[in-house]
């Protein structure tokens, strides 16, 4: 059973370098297969943009979705502290891998339309060498028009830019002028479950990384992915599927839920548990025992 953790490294005093290194080692020792790092370049006090993932599967019955709203008011909001920070994903990945030997690290997800693909591929190539090939590139479109404006990228162009950049990654990696020439491209997983995301994953990516889908929706969208792979003459065997979940429930409910996604065709499951600096070692070990990861 391969299970990854999604968590935040925010650059705060409570989550300093020692914390980051200890977190990675503890996760590796507890048998988790990977750590996944969310990306936001900036947060905002107020958003006009709607947060698209307010619902998560019910922990005791992942066939059913339940809505979680964060913060004051009833509008769905991104789950972020008032003074939320986040370290750069790629540098954090390099640091986590430097202090572990087996653990994979991925982006959950990197906002691809905001990147220049030439610069990103150079970064990827360097990171691939520094991590011994342990980095997985999860990519997404994002949802915050405010973040796009801060990056100087028109929000209306996000879909076209995503698709263009996704295609460019493979072309640039195979070309000259990059330090990655000759090595395999890291896994590229398209995040999300919108119709365009599913189409792009099946056509361009080496994996799919949906978020907070009920088991029924997961199975339905995975069938669409598999149909898309067949349409493009691509092999399902070489395609990675990671089910991502924000898990709010009791640890006792985890094993049947994770097993259900794996039975349906996920290669692994990523869990966001939002652990604290005080409790993460115990929580990791408890979850590991419940899932039988360290065996």
């Amino acid at each position: 059973m391969r299970v990854g953790l999604v968590d935040l490294f925010d650059g705060s005093a409570q989550r300093d370098l020692a914390y980051l290194r200890a977190f990675a080692r503890t996760a590796e020792e507890a048998g988790f297969s990977s750590l996944w790092l969310p990306e936001h370049l900036v947060f905002f006090e107020e958003y006009d943009s709607a947060y698209p993932y307010p619902a998560a599967p019910n922990p005791a019955n992942p066939e059913v979705a339940e809505v979680h709203t964060y913060g004051a008011g009833s509008a769905p909001r991104v789950e972020a502290a008032q003074e939320q920070g986040l370290l750069d994903v790629l540098q954090t990945a390099a640091e986590l891998c430097r202090h572990t030997t087996r653990l994979r690290v991925g982006s959950s997800v990197l906002l691809l339309p905001l990147r220049d693909p030439r610069l990103l591929v150079r970064e990827l190539a360097t990171l691939d060498l520094l991590t011994g090939g342990r980095f997985d590139l999860g990519v997404g479109v994002g949802w915050s028009a405010e973040e796009y404006a801060a990056a100087g990228v028109p929000f209306a162009e996000r879909g076209a830019r995503f698709e263009r950049n996704l295609a460019a990654i493979s072309e640039l990696w195979a070309g000259e002028g990059m330090p990655g020439t000759g090595r395999p491209l890291p896994r590229v997983l398209v995040g999300g479950q919108s119709r365009p995301a599913i189409r792009r994953a099946a056509r361009y990516a080496t994996g799919w990384y949906p978020w907070n889908l009920t088991t029924g929706d997961f199975a339905r969208h995975l069938a669409e992915i598999e149909a898309g792979l067949r349409e493009h003459g691509r092999s399902r065997a070489d395609f990675h599927v990671i089910a991502g979940l924000r898990f709010h429930g009791a640890v006792a409910d985890l094993r049947p839920a994770v097993e259900r996604y794996l039975e349906l065709g996920a290669d692994s499951v990523n869990l966001s548990l939002r652990m604290t600096p005080a409790t993460y070692p115990d929580t990791m070990r408890e979850v590991s025992r419940a899932l039988g990861l360290a065996a």
């Binding site: 650059g11 370049l41 986040l86 640091e95 905001l114 990056a151 100087g152």
Partner: peptide
């Protein structure tokens, strides 16, 4: 001029942190 300011600001602030 060829870089996104929000992307570069995050990368550099992180390197300064590390």
């Amino acid at each position: 001029s060829a870089r996104s300011p929000a992307v570069r600001a995050k990368q550099l602030a992180t390197l300064d942190w590390f």
